[in-house]
Simulated assay, not measured.
Amino acid sequence: MLHTDIPTRGEILALASTTGPWCVSVYTPTEADTPTPDKNRVAFENQVKEVLDRVTDKQAGIALTDAFADLVDDEDYWRFQSRTLAVHATPTGMRTYRLPNRLEPSATLGDRFHIKPLLRAVTFPQTAFVLALSENAVRLVEVAAEGPAAEVAVAGLPTDLNKYLDLPPLGRGPHGRLQGSEGRKVRVRQFCRAVDQALRPVLAGHDIPLILAAAEPTDSLYRSVDSYPLLLAEGIPGNPEHLSDGDLAARARQLLDQHYAAELANVRSEFEKRRSDGRGVIDLSDIARAATYGIVHTLFVDIDASVPGAVTPDGALAAATGEAPGVLDEISRRVLLSNGRVLAVRGDDIPDGAHAAAILRYAP
C-alpha cells in the first residue's frame, strides 16, 4: 500500500508564498513498504547533509539540522512511504509530503521553495478514491498509480439499503403515501445521501478524483446528492459487488488516463485558439512578464526541464545572484500566486516543444 500525502491547492499556495533566506527543498525517491526502510532514510540523510552544509547562518543551521534530525530519527515514519518524499523546511517549520509520483532526487537552498516538482502530483494525480455502491454493500477504495488498492475505513458508512426500505411508508401530502417504485426511489436517494454524509470527513481536504462504481438507478441517484466536487462524470458501470478491489483499481486507472488525456487535449486546443489574438505565448521572457503582472490564466511547464536564472520584480529574466530554484519554478510560483493554473507536464505535452507555454487572461 502506498502512503500518500498529496498537498492541496491551499498548501501549495502556502509554500509558494513562503520566502526567506533559508528555504530548503528536498525530493527523495522512495520505495513503498520496503523491508529495508533505512535505504530510503540514508539517501534522504545524504541529500540533507549536502544542502545544510551550504547554510552559512549559525542559528538557522542549528534549527534546520535539529528539524531534519527529528525526521530522520522517526522510524515509524520511514516504514510507510510512497514513490517520492518531498520535504520543505525553513528554520521555523517543516512540511512533508509522500507523493505517488516518481520524481528525480534534488536538494535546493534558496530564498523560496522549489515547488515545480511538487506540481506534478497535483496536476494529474494518479490517485483516486473509488466508491463501490450497491444495495447490499458499500466500500471506499483508495487507488494509487502503482501497487495494490486498499479499502478505506469510514466511520458511520451505511452498508445496507434494507434498513431504509424497511422504514414506514413515506407520506407525501394528506391524500396518499409514496409506494412502489416511487417510494423505493426516495429510499435509495436517502441511502445515497447518508453515504455522502459519511464520506465528507474522509474526503475533506483531498484534491483527488472520486470515481463511482454503481449500477443504475443507484448511479444517478447518488450523483443527485453528491457533495464532493471532484466526482468524475464517467464511472464504473454495473454491480460492483462482483469486482475485487484490484478490479476496481484497474478500471479506475483507465478512467483516470482517459480523463486527463481529454483534459490536456482541451487545454492545448484552447492554447491554439488563443495564438491568433496574442493570448497564446511560448516565449519565456513574455511568459515571465505576464506571470509577474498576473495575466497568465493557464501555464504549461516542463516538469523535467531546468532553466537557470531568476526573474526580476518587474518580470525580466536575469542571471541568478545566488542559489535559486530557477526561472521555470519562479514563473510557476508567480502564476499560482495570481490565481492562475499550472500544468506540470512532460515536454512532449507542451506546444512547440517549448519549456513553457501560457494562455493569457487578456492580450498584453
Rank of each mutant, 00 (worst) to 15 (best):
K49D: 14
A261Q: 14
L15R: 13
R251F: 07
L248G: 14
S276A: 15
R184A: 11
R289Q: 13
Y293I: 05
V202D: 04
L165Y: 06
T34W: 00
P91D: 14
L140S: 10
P364C: 12
P229A: 05
A215Q: 12
L343C: 09
S17L: 05
H297Y: 08
L103C: 07
T56H: 11
A318G: 04
R112Q: 07
S276M: 06
P35K: 03
Q197C: 05
L243P: 07
R83T: 06
A324M: 00
A261W: 00
S224G: 15
I62L: 11
V307K: 15
T36F: 04
F271P: 03
S285Q: 13
D329H: 02
G110N: 03
A356W: 14
H355A: 14
P209M: 08
L71S: 02
E263V: 04
D5G: 05
L212V: 02
I303H: 13
R95E: 08
L264S: 12
F300I: 01
S181H: 04
L99I: 06
I331P: 11
S285P: 00
A305P: 08
P7R: 13
L85F: 02
R41K: 13
Y293E: 09
G147A: 12
P100F: 02
T108L: 04
G147I: 07
H114C: 12
G173C: 08
V122L: 03
D348T: 12
D286H: 07
T127C: 06
P21C: 00
K185D: 12
H175D: 14
Q258L: 13
G171N: 06
G347R: 15
D70L: 05
A320Y: 09
L343S: 09
R334E: 10
A155F: 03
L231G: 05
T8L: 08
V48S: 10
A60S: 13
V152A: 11
D166F: 04
R333L: 07
A320T: 09
P169H: 10
S220P: 03
Y222R: 11
A290Y: 09
G347P: 01
G205N: 05
T292A: 03
V72N: 09
A213I: 01
C23S: 06
L210I: 02
D257Y: 14
M94Y: 08
I350A: 11
V327D: 11
G280P: 01
L178F: 09
A32K: 05
